[in-house]
Structure formats: structure tokens, C-alpha cells
């Protein structure tokens, strides 16, 4: 433990729109995790046969940089990364109004620059912001956070050491407005009671993260907002 309370999140920093070449992007620092998310699209589907007639195809690539871990990680996509790409995509897909862009694709790229447990959750949080930044219609933002168990105690947001010493890890992706869970996985073992407690804890944390996400979006477009308010005033005068 690093001196946090059992139900305390690691410090989170969010930034929106930091890549010029992507249609939308976001950067997250969640504890010692550093993750970039970029979104391209909606754009033409390639190859053409993957396109769907009634909605956009959402593609996701989760990747860890070779220098993101203690020991050099092979840059080739591992089995784990493929699985995470899939679960991340599935947790974000319900929030995307992909029916607005039939026959096109939306690409989500998540690059982990530095990993310290909970990268899938931080990745989802950042990717959802990147989607919003790309101007893609969303039902709402998706926030994600993990809870776990160490020494028989349910704790929130495990770091790498905590995760390795702990007994269980429970990543959750959550949409606060519709009260829907988009991702729920578990490593290790917990009793039913502990599971409930951990889930509640994670969902509460997701709500906190959701507010941070909205703040981050607002910060990005903050100047525009303030000035548009003054614009309204001048219009009235004129």
C-alpha cells in the first residue's frame, strides 16, 4: 500500500485533444499509468467487406509500448493484448451511436506508455474521452476502475505491487447515466459478499472518474465557452 485509504483512488490526470493527426485523442495518468488514446473516424471501411450496412464498425487496438513495463515487452501484440482490445471495444461500443455512420469504421487506438496495473480501465476512460473529442455521437462517457482484495480486505484501484500481492482484482467499466456495466472481469477469488462490496466501491469510483472526464472535456473547450457567453451578452446589447 502507498498510504491511500482502502477506498481511495490513485491520483488521476486527464487531458483531451493532444494529438493533431488523430480525429480525437486523450491522455490519462492514473497513478503511475501513462496511457494515450487516439480515435480515427468515422472513416471509410477498409477492407470493404468488413463494413456493416446499418452501422459503423468499431475497431480497437490496445497495445503496450516495449518500454512500458519493468522488463522489455515484445512489441508484437500478445494474446493478452488481443483479449483486452476485445473487452475494451465491447465496453465502449454500447455508448457509441454507431448507427449514424453506416458502412464506415471508427478506430480506437490505446497505447500504454507506462503500466502500473489497471491499464485496461484507464484505457477505457481515456478512449471514451477521445471518442467524444472526435465528435462522435455518444450516449454518454464510459468510466472504468478496478477494485480488489488484499489480505482479506476489499480495496479500490490496485497498483502493480498491490495487484501482485493481492488475492483478487475486479476491473469494472460503468456508464453512470444508464447505470450499466460495460466490463466486469475478475482475477483471483472473492466471496459473494466481498464481490458486492468491491463492485459498489468500483462503481462509486467510476462516478468520480466520470465527473473528472466531464471536467477534462470542459477544460479543453473552456475558453470557447467563456467567450461564447460574452458573445451572447453583446448580441443582446446590439
Amino acid at each position: 500500500m502507498d498510504g491511500r485509504r482502502l477506498d481511495e483512488l490513485r491520483p488521476i490526470k486527464l487531458e483531451v485533444g493532444i494529438l493533431d493527426k488523430a480525429d480525437g485523442s486523450a491522455y490519462i495518468e492514473h497513478g503511475r499509468n501513462k496511457i494515450l488514446a487516439a480515435v480515427f473516424g468515422p472513416r471509410e471501411a477498409h477492407p470493404k467487406h468488413i463494413a456493416l450496412a446499418d452501422r459503423a464498425v468499431v475497431k480497437c487496438r490496445y497495445h503496450m509500448a516495449p518500454f512500458s513495463t519493468d522488463e522489455r515487452k515484445s512489441p508484437a501484440p500478445s494474446r493478452r493484448e488481443l483479449e483486452l482490445s476485445k473487452v475494451i471495444r465491447e465496453s465502449l461500443e454500447p455508448s457509441i451511436m454507431s448507427e449514424y455512420f453506416p458502412r464506415s469504421t471508427i478506430d480506437i487506438i490505446i497505447e500504454v506508455l507506462q503500466a502500473d496495473a489497471g491499464t485496461r480501465c484507464a484505457g477505457i476512460t481515456a478512449a471514451s474521452l477521445a471518442l467524444a473529442d472526435a465528435g462522435i455521437p455518444l450516449r454518454e462517457l464510459v468510466a472504468a476502475c478496478a477494485a480488489g482484495k488484499i489480505d482479506g480486505k476489499v480495496v479500490l484501484d490496485l497498483s502493480d505491487i498491490e495487484d501482485k500481492k493481492g488475492d483478487a482484482d475486479l476491473p469494472v467499466a460503468y456508464m453512470p447515466k444508464s447505470n450499466a456495466i460495460g466490463l466486469l472481469q475478475m482475477d483471483g477469488s472473492m466471496t459473494e459478499e466481498e464481490l458486492k462490496q468491491a463492485l459498489d466501491m468500483a462503481i462509486n469510483a467510476c462516478k468520480t472518474i466520470y465527473d473528472m472526464q466531464r471536467d477534462a472535456l470542459r477544460r479543453k473547450y473552456h475558453i470557447e465557452r467563456d467567450e461564447s457567453e460574452t458573445e451572447e451578452v453583446t448580441e443582446v446589447k446590439a
Binding site: A132, R139, L141, P176, R225
Partner: peptide, 10 residues
């Protein structure tokens, strides 16, 4: 409010 900045889900 009119001309207020909003985001997805607001």
C-alpha cells in the same frame, strides 16, 4: 442554459 457547453450524456 443557451449556448452552454455540453458533452455526451448531459
Amino acid at each position: 442554459e443557451r449556448k452552454q457547453l455540453v458533452g455526451p450524456g448531459d
